[in-house]
Design a protein around this nucleic acid. Sequence first.
DNA 1: TGTGTAGTCTTTAGCATCGAACTTTAGCTT
DNA 2: AAGCTAAAGTTCGATGCTAAAGACTACACA
Lengths: 178, 178
Amino acid sequence: MPERLPTLDEQIAIYQREYRDLDPQVEKVVNALSRLDRRMNVAYGRQLATLGLTSPEWEVLKELVMAGSPYQLWPGTIAKRLGLTPAAMTHRIDRMLTQSLVTREPDPDNRVRVIIGLTDTGREKWLEVMRKASVFEEELLQDLSSPERGQLGELLTRLLRRVEDAQPDAGGRLTDLD
Amino acid sequence: MPERLPTLDEQIAIYQREYRDLDPQVEKVVNALSRLDRRMNVAYGRQLATLGLTSPEWEVLKELVMAGSPYQLWPGTIAKRLGLTPAAMTHRIDRMLTQSLVTREPDPDNRVRVIIGLTDTGREKWLEVMRKASVFEEELLQDLSSPERGQLGELLTRLLRRVEDAQPDAGGRLTDLD
DNA sequence: TGTGTAGTCTTTAGCATCGAACTTTAGCTT
DNA sequence: AAGCTAAAGTTCGATGCTAAAGACTACACA
């Protein structure tokens, strides 16, 4: 009974025994991506915890900063980008309000809308996380030379372009399903 | 008030305005990874739904197949790999039992342990998902030549090696935190 | 101007997950 | 052997999420 996580190559070898037509090259890329993201999130989670933040809160802060000055978005927009229901967004904002990370004001242009804004506290928190995160990120990439880093970024960007064009708001579809 | 998701490069430009010491090359890699994983999961989720599977169930099936014949693991092992608490694992297995995707038997060698096994139904489901997923994966990578795919796989593997060595069971730490 | 329709956010009920306490067993230690 | 410690998995209470329904607003069209 194996305790140890199979290496990526072991995983793919087994997958190929189960499904002969599998393309090992493609599978390697896709599974490496997914494994990396899991590990990165574990690492981020640790750093967030030391700063008294949860990962849901962090996601929202990122979106608001990413929006640029004046750091405002509608709840529905954030929800769509994060793949959440509007209901979840309502409650997340509620929680973040109690910590003064964000504000919620009525939209003067449309009374059924609401504007979520980033507070200075929220912006500060974002910065603290980034400072810690960048240490981890540098460590993660330390085995890659600068040209390799650039190349990796470029290759990933090309993948991303395809999938983001196909799912503009995460609502499109890349393949026909039925 | 922006509705549109900033492109990766826009995002990084804004981040740099907020945090001047940020390394754009590193940030590009890390954020592309995270964006890609989100999109991939959306796509997988769709395909799973058409096969009557949920993503939590899919995760467990993957681990059992990955273990190789005879497709058996302890609940605690699966939980650790998926980053779940043992409690969550118990309930997941309960649900999967009702669909005959897995079995739960006492471990003959240690009466406090339990063995989760993959059923033929579960193995079939895994195969169905993989067949659909490989279509999507091929489409995702279609803009990359075969050497580029190999290169991307190799670069990602090097990152993965570093982080998996540092967090052997997702319990280690890559950076000192306090 | 009135009405229908679509869209935005909130409320509610049900469910999955977490953290923590608990039960049972295995393996030491003396 | 007997007791101590560590480990595995289940149970329990609390929290965040989803899906669906509801309240309200804006816009199009007659």
